[in-house]
């Protein structure tokens, strides 16, 4: 009873102060994959509770640019803000795409909370994208692409498919998912990766002109027997670039770390 009255009062208050509608819930059925692109600011991704998927921003509505002429019209060509947060959210099949506007505006901080089962794909290769993505505690399958933006992460498990042109890729795994391979590539940025010391994997580390450091004992592969019947008993010519490959802790899923000019730091923790 007390509670009911309180709720009524709260509503009355909310109405009184003209509380704006800046928190709302939507139900989207059958999400299998979440694609995130062109986020106008820094992006933080965290695990959510209860299959809920939530977006937060500190961006003020007034900061969200709006063209006076477009009032009442919906853009046909590009995405539009249907979340009230300066982002559009579009479902197509089992995929949901979250996308920002085509504007140079990277002033906001966005946090997206995702449930553990969805696949996550972050594409910040658009020049309108912000410069940093950070992923914390996600057990999801992750794909991240950036141009110059850094990719930071902590306590993830993968499988991961990370690619950056000049951004640094650094962070730690809490465990390495053995279901599928993980691949991390930076063209000119560094790769600094920490994994639990008991991680089992088949690693391939390669840097064309950078240096490779490893805290793990890598058991070198025995010379590979060529599986091509035509090659017969010919030994395979091994090695592309500065390459180290082999098993750690007896081997497991495939883990690829590659860079052209960046150093690779492969740490055990």
């Amino acid at each position: 009873m007390k509670h009911t009255i309180l709720v009524i009062i709260i509503f009355w208050l909310a109405w009184q102060t003209g509380l704006s509608q800046n928190q709302y819930e939507t139900k989207i059925p059958n999400i299998r994959k979440v694609l995130i692109e062109k986020i106008p600011g820094t992006l933080l991704i965290e695990q959510s509770q209860n299959n809920v998927f939530k977006i937060e921003t500190d961006k003020e509505p007034s900061e969200i640019v709006e063209d006076e002429r477009t009032r009442g019209l919906k853009p046909v060509t590009s995405s539009y803000d249907n979340t009230g947060l300066g982002l559009s959210l579009v479902q197509s099949g089992s995929n949901v795409t979250i996308s920002g506007p085509n504007q140079f505006d990277a002033t906001g901080n966005y946090t997206i909370f995702l449930p553990p089962e969805v696949e996550v794909s972050v594409d910040l290769t658009n020049p309108f994208s912000g410069q940093l993505v950070e992923i914390r505690g996600l057990k999801n399958s992750l794909e991240v692409k950036t141009l110059s933006g850094d990719i930071k992460f902590s306590n993830i498990t993968g499988p991961t498919v990370f690619h950056s042109i000049s951004g640094n890729i650094e962070g730690s795994f809490s465990d390495l998912n053995q279901e599928a391979p993980s691949s991390i590539i930076s063209i000119s940025g560094l790769i600094d990766l920490a994994m639990p010391s008991n991680t089992k994997a088949e690693v391939k580390l390669m840097s064309v002109s950078g240096k490779i450091y490893s805290g793990f004992e890598i058991e070198k592969e025995k010379p590979n027997k060529n599986k091509d019947p035509r090659a017969g008993e010919l030994a395979q010519i091994s090695g592309i670039g500065q390459k180290t490959s082999g098993k750690i802790n007896g081997g497991g899923t495939s883990l690829i770390l590659q860079s052209i000019s960046g150093n690779i730091y492969f740490r055990n923790k």
Partner: peptide, 28 residues
């Protein structure tokens, strides 16, 4: 105080929440 409260309404993390239905898991 009211002004402060109002400000809190806005920049203080606007958010959208989506409930995910996982029937695709069955398909998988």
């Amino acid at each position: 105080f009211r002004q402060m409260l109002e400000k809190q309404h806005k920049p203080q993390k606007q958010s959208i929440t989506i409930t995910v239905d996982f029937s695709w898991k069955k398909i998988a």
